[in-house]
Simulated scan of single mutants.
Amino acid sequence: MRSLKGAAARGLGTSAVLAAALALPLSFAPAAGAATADRTDDRLSAGESLKPSESVKSDNGQYKLIQQAQGNLVLYGPGGNALWSSPASGSPAYATMQREGNLVIYNALNKPLWSTNTAGNAGAYLTVQDDGNLVIYSADNRFLWSRHAYVGSLPSGHTLKAGQWVQSENGQYQLVMQKEGNLVLYTKDHKARWTTPTADAPGAKATMQKEGNLVIYSSSGKGVWTSPTAGNPGAYLAVQDEGNVVIYSKDDKPLWSPKQTG
């Protein structure tokens, strides 16, 4: 039985460009009705936006989330070290915590560039925590997304880097991109149910490609494993409440699921 809604599981197009800051056009403006974030607070509430160079910081002041002029949203830690970055477009952009629950980066023409894929959670908010985590919570404080984890699915065009994971909505299963290169499905008690044969690729990442296949790339960018699902643009990966890993087409038809143990 499916535990995901397809429309909520699909991602927006992304482009991983980290360029030098660009000058802000005079015509630039956030979407109508969006408020400017209170930069003395640790959160971006529903309906609030970050314009280029605006930021939200943790209560302890150690971590700061900055909307960069070139389009990417970056979390900085102590000493100014970049801990996380959204994909960027190479053009001026702003970030909005939308009222329906999505954190979305828009360019100056109000075209969406990237999303956390958390729509359907009206009143959700983003917070920069004192431990350095960047988290989206629902209005009733349920975990929806973080810089380390996705809940329910890995959308088309999104990537799991080493140390990141997708967890089932009930929190019982996690698909973890491990530092040695394996992508592993774990139960809550840390029992492995499935793994890719990629342990000899330290620093690898897993990308749900826009053409439909899940690919693990080595740190040098070489493909070392792939699912047999190419030719299905917009497909996404789901980690379901019953413990299945499934790749679905954009219209929610199951395409592939690995054979699991346990």
Rank of each mutant, 00 (worst) to 15 (best):
S27V: 14
V56G: 00
P30Q: 12
R10C: 02
K51P: 05
G33A: 09
L44N: 03
N60A: 04
S58R: 05
S53K: 04
R39H: 06
D42Y: 06
G11T: 13
A32H: 10
L22Y: 05
S49I: 02
A16V: 07
A19M: 08
A20V: 12
A31L: 13
L50V: 01
L22I: 08
D42Q: 10
G6H: 03
L26Y: 15
E48Q: 15
A46G: 14
L50P: 00
L22V: 13
L50Q: 01
G33Q: 11
G47D: 07
L12M: 06
K57W: 03
F28C: 09
G47V: 01
P52C: 14
D38E: 12
G47H: 08
Y63D: 00
L24Y: 10
E48R: 03
T40G: 12
S45L: 06
S49D: 11
D59M: 00
A21L: 10
N60T: 02
A29I: 07
L44M: 04
T36P: 02
A34P: 04
Q62P: 03
T40S: 12
A8H: 14
T40I: 06
D41R: 02
V17Y: 13
V17T: 11
A16K: 07
A37R: 10
A21Q: 07
F28K: 14
R43M: 10
A7T: 00
T40R: 09
N60D: 01
A35M: 13
G33R: 08
V56C: 00
L12F: 12
D59N: 05
S15A: 08
G13T: 15
A20N: 07
P30V: 11
R10P: 00
L18P: 05
L22A: 15
A31Q: 09
S45Q: 12
A46N: 12
V56Q: 00
A19K: 12
E54L: 02
A32I: 13
Y63N: 02
A20L: 08
A46P: 14
A9Y: 01
L26H: 15
S49F: 10
L18G: 10
A32D: 15
R43H: 14
A16Y: 11
G33W: 12
G47F: 07
R10L: 09
L18Y: 13
A35C: 07
L24R: 14
S53V: 04
S45N: 12
D42P: 08
N60Y: 05
N60C: 05
A34C: 12
K64F: 00
T14H: 05
P25I: 11
D59E: 07
G13V: 02
A34S: 13
G47W: 11
V17I: 06
P30L: 15
A19H: 04
T14D: 03
A29F: 13
G6Y: 04
E48F: 13
S58G: 02
A34W: 15
E48A: 07
P30Y: 14
D41T: 12
